[in-house]
Amino acid sequence: MSDPGTDPREARIEAVPLTPGAKGGWRRVKGPGIFALAGLAAIWVLLPMVSDSWGIRFGAPYRVFFSLAVLGSALFFILLNWGPIPAPGSPLTTFASIFLVYGATVGGVMSFGLWYYPQFEIPKPAVEQARAQERGKQAFLSPAANCFACHSIEALGIRGGTRGPDLSAVGAQAEARKSGTPAEDYIRESIVNPAACLTPLPASGLAECLPAADPARTYPPLMPPGFKDRLSDEQINDLVTFLMGLKGLAEQDGKSR
């Protein structure tokens, strides 16, 4: 980099402001305007007339894209032709103009991001599911349900009773508990009608539940009935969602891979 301080080519005279509006309005937009009109005509009138066999038929999203490019280019050349603009006169207009330029720039590019394409993943269900899981966990721990009196969830560090099965992986196990019954339905049934099918003991080696109690193979039928009356439908739904999300220690640690 050369030395600007001692460079004789650098004028040390007082800067004379450039005169705003040195160019006429029509001259500023004439060339770019003609370019924009010609470009848009080519994109929207000529291109659709071209035979498919030429292999240059662009779809509507591309034509919108090229139209934006043409208009953007024309705007760029209009700005090149514009000539000096007046400097802001007061502190208020100075700050307002600075914020306007910055805000309009950010807003413009944000709008492009929002326009670019219909979006691919709807995040709301995931958030809603997580909230339902959290409410279900609260229901699990609530005195009204008192689930933890008999059940533990080691994967979450919930050390409850041991009379019932550990529910750390109930979401995964439920898939095989009752043949022909979806996991969610099985969990719901085991809450509202716990005697319908009894959970096998881990030592039994069984995956499916059994319709009758068997001290050697199933947990004892100690789970009290009546949860349908003690808990609201929403609470039961949340509880089911929470239990469905329990997939075991490996998943909870995030080391399933």
């Binding site: 991001g113 993943e121 995040p123 080391k255």
Partner: peptide, 23 residues
């Protein structure tokens, strides 16, 4: 590949969402 995101926000957000956040 080692630690799963188990929060409710595990999903890849849309370009629109990221555009607003960047703004």
């Amino acid at each position: 590949g080692a630690l799963k995101d188990l929060t409710p926000y595990w999903y890849v957000v849309t370009l629109g969402h990221s555009s607003v956040m960047a703004a």
